[in-house]
Amino acid sequence: MLKKIINGWAKHQVAVTLVFLAFLILYPVLFHSYYLRNVAIQCLIYSLLSLALNLIMGYTGIVVLGMAAFYGIGAYALALLTTKLGISFLPAVALAVVITFCFGVLLALPTLRIQGNYLAIVTLGFCEIIRIVELNWVSLTNGPFGIKQIPAPDIFGIKSIFGLKLSKPEGKYYVVLILLVITVVILHNVLNSRSGRAWKSIKGDPIAARAMGINVFRYKVFAFAICAAIAGLAGAYYAAYTGYVDSTTFNYNQSILILSMTIMGGLGSIPGSIIGAIFFVILPEVLRWLGTFCGEWIVEWRQIIYGLILVIMIMFKSDGILGGFDLRQIHLYNKLVKEKEAEEKQNG
């Protein structure tokens, strides 16, 4: 069943992508409710985060348990740049991405020599340290009160294009959609380039990769920094979207949520990450809706269900629903098989 869907998808890859993109573009036109638009924005933010984690975990094989750290750094960077320095949205986002990129490099340089399991714990510790700093550096981050009144997205002071107000949910939706599309296009190209192949080979076997002349350490640092930068981008957008940041958003549970999305969707699969993000954002909303029928208790089971999904996925398909399926390879393979069959038929 899954195989059939995947084969069909591989055959009509471009069409599927275009239809999905068209749906995303038309979404605010189709759905007018304030609630549904905000849920969609959440889906897209988490898609960015899940993609970031997938890059490092699915393609390079490094497990990061502290994604919320970079998410938080990006959010705080944008909040401080716009409220304290008065920089407008776009340059502030660019700066926030650069800042998180630098944090990624700074963390990666000393820690990437550490063995896999320990490294996961180090990123978890890093996330806690960042959260504690966010909470206690009151003169910079306003401590537990957070930073309020972060201006909504704008484009160099222009607050509406074609009658679309960027401070309204539909405007904010298109901003994050554009950010996501740009990220996916860049990621797709990087992953099919020399660097992408280097990352995959490192995941397969770091020692063999080194023997092939790949500078394993440098590529790992590069992947780590890009992962941090994408999470920072998501954080920067999040700050402008909600207009308020505080340290409680960027905790351990957030990291585990992002981890669940990536694992559920599929390691090493861009559409997988997006599917995982959509699933985990919609799940609590569906549970809330179910709660109106069978009682409130089901809403409180949300976290328990997250945990169960994590356990079940790891046990039965540890690389996620779409993990291990390279659509391009499957398409090529199917095409070759068909050609071969046709050839054999011709020959008799």
Binding site: V63, I256, G307, L310, V311, I314
Partner: peptide
Amino acid sequence: KKNAPGISALICTVGYSTVITNLLLY
């Protein structure tokens, strides 16, 4: 038994800890 990478077991225990903690919370 599946010879999965060591990190799978770690993530599995993360899942269990999430379930247990939230069951207690509930």
